[in-house]
Design a protein around this nucleic acid. Structure first.
Lengths: 214, 214
DNA sequence: GTTTTTCGATACGAATGCGTTTCGAAACGC
DNA sequence: GCGTTTCGAAACGCATTCGTATCGAAAAAC
């Protein structure tokens, strides 16, 4: 019988692949994605050098560059602030603040660049990013807006798509144009409050949002 | 004397450089910038081929790729909608609409990508873009906001930087996330009106901005 | 110990692009 | 016509990167 364990996991016999090398490759890939602009500038050889790994070890696991990128970006867990805080305003502020910090982080910033610019060149990659990173966040904001419209903290006739674009677009553009130095909770509050004053009911339910002079 | 016209334009004697070739090079460069994502993917040889020109003709005018890019992007005149329309709202709508259309145009979109992503790699280039393209538009919006605050069409205590980020960021993000298909004046109006309801005075000076149901 | 597989390192051929050079033809002033 | 300069085309040396192949060493199962 010679101990044939065919029914088991069928371990391949031989030196097992190093999980440590695999992690080093993924980490190096994410590092270099963050440092480069555009996927074309990213080279397998640079990844191998950064990871302290031979190219062989990379090509034994992924057959080409795009396959590696798909797996690397998929490991970028989306930590979704998604606090169920007390008020809609608090949750919006928390979200904007996290988003602003993400916009300053090199690797996460580049993920958005890829999603926006390389849709035609790398459709599989972009689709994966949309599913893993973008869609959950979009869903979270949409739910937050719906909650606000239900509780009356937000006006009922707002356009959710535009409101979402305003939240994210304002945060991103401000960070990019004014510099990432001054990201703070206070800035997130100003952004949200200026938006809230628009989407809040015409009455003064959210009077605190737009602080009167006195 | 042998007719030495040293004081004149001192024409160089010999076959003059072809202005037609120069324009073809610039046009080809802008075309390819729009089609590629990232400056690294742009090749001089592709530009020469697209322009129907020898590489010699390019290198005789510009000593390297970056010099060519600087000049090419500098020719992108910024047509600044900048209408002195009747109301601040009208001007804002006009600006947002133009900005949305620009965000769909491949070459102009890439200009913004360069300005945002390649600041460290090509500082001269980015600085030039800022001066030629970004700064005039920023100044125009800032003036428009000041005008609104002066005339009372806008609240006096708004944060101009955040308001500008909201205008541009919302338009850009909406176009990118929802697809460029549905760019229209009506969309620009919805974006501006949702912002206006926020930055307009608490009273109802701009009651027309947020149309009541009836 | 033997076998099998992976390890990192290195070299390879093919492709691409840079910036330069050379070439014959063409366009200008004289 | 003559000298000068630019033209497009082609080739050059050099560098980089791809994806593959080869090497001796190391790590597991047997």
């Amino acid at each position: 019988m010679t101990t044939t364990d065919e029914t088991q996991t069928a371990r391949p016999a031989g030196r097992p692949r190093s999980a440590r090398a695999e992690k080093a490759i993924i980490d190096a890939t994410l590092d270099l994605i963050g440092e480069s602009s555009g996927l074309g500038e990213l080279s397998i050889e640079a990844i191998a050098a950064r990871a302290g790994v031979g190219k062989t070890t990379i090509y034994r696991r992924w057959s080409n560059k795009e396959d590696l990128l798909v797996d690397a970006l998929a490991t970028l867990k989306s930590p979704l602030p998604s606090l169920r805080g007390g008020s809609v305003r608090e949750d919006l502020v928390a979200y904007v603040e996290v988003f602003q910090r993400d916009a300053c982080d090199a690797s996460k910033r580049c993920v958005m660049n890829i999603a926006m610019n390389e849709a035609e060149r790398h459709p599989r990659l972009v689709e994966r990013i949309r599913q893993v990173t973008i869609e959950p966040r979009r869903a979270a904001i949409a739910a937050l807006l719906r909650r606000g419209m239900a509780t009356g903290e937000l006006r009922a006739d707002i356009d959710p798509l535009i409101a979402m674009a305003t939240l994210i677009g304002t945060a991103m553009w401000y960070v990019r144009s004014e510099g990432a130095a001054e990201v703070s909770r206070e800035l997130a509050e100003r952004v949200v409050d200026q938006l809230l004053a628009g989407i809040a009911p015409a009455g003064a339910v959210n009077a605190g949002a737009v602080k009167p002079e006195r």
